[in-house]
């Protein structure tokens, strides 16, 4: 399918296990890009047996052109919040694609070209609850991939977050963005700048 893809098309998968809020994260991401970012977007999800305990996922396709085929074929970006999701979906990530994992749960990564951030642990320690790990990971995804702007995400988070959780979600989003920026620096130092210094 690679030959069929227009270069403007970006395919993203947010994955983990049922209950981690990945469908919700997919909606937030799609709305930030589609409504506040003014690009075409299609969000689909896989549910059924998978959503009950096993790997769960939410896919977002972004394009400047009309999106005909709404599902993903080769991922440009994979966010994996569990080891199982990372193992299941890494083969769908295309060569050179971006892998972001929650190192709280993902201990074995299939490649060293990965952005590893302990979202759940930091959410628990800094925000006081692990449930905002999904929103935190979106912040990091924005900083790392630049497919969405932080302020676009912030507007959606504030409008869609359950009442009373806005502050925690906003804090998680900003924390995630900072973690993402730091991860980008580390990644650059390791793979881009380091070889040049030798």
């Amino acid at each position: 399918m690679s030959e069929s893809k227009d270069t403007k098309r970006i395919e993203i998968r947010l994955s983990g296990s049922g209950g981690q809020g990945l469908i919700f994260a997919g909606i937030l991401l799609a709305e930030a890009i589609g409504i506040y970012g003014d690009k075409n977007v299609a969000q689909t999800q896989s549910y059924g047996p998978e959503a009950r305990g096993g790997a769960s996922r939410s896919d977002v396709v972004i394009s400047e052109d009309i999106i005909f085929y709404p599902k993903t074929t080769e991922l440009d970006i994979l966010l994996a919040l569990t080891q199982e999701a990372c193992d299941s979906y890494y083969p769908a990530l295309k060569g050179g694609g971006t892998l972001i994992v929650d190192s709280t749960y993902v201990s074995q990564v299939p490649t060293d070209k990965v952005y590893s951030i302990p979202f759940t642990r930091i959410a628990r320690e800094k925000i006081g609850t692990p449930v905002v790990a999904n929103v935190m990971s979106l912040g990091a995804l924005a900083a790392i991939t630049k497919v969405v702007k932080l302020d676009e995400l912030e507007q959606v988070v504030l409008s869609r977050a359950p009442r009373g959780t806005e502050d925690k979600n906003k804090a998680a989003l900003n924390e995630g963005f900072e973690l993402g920026e730091k991860a980008v620096k580390d990644y650059r130092a390791k793979f881009i700048d380091a070889p040049r210094r030798q």
């Binding site: 709305e31 977007v41 299609a42 969000q43 689909t44 709404p70 599902k71």
Partner: peptide
């Protein structure tokens, strides 16, 4: 099912 549950602008 795909269309019913798909989100678009």
């Amino acid at each position: 099912e795909v269309l019913g549950h798909m989100r678009e602008r």
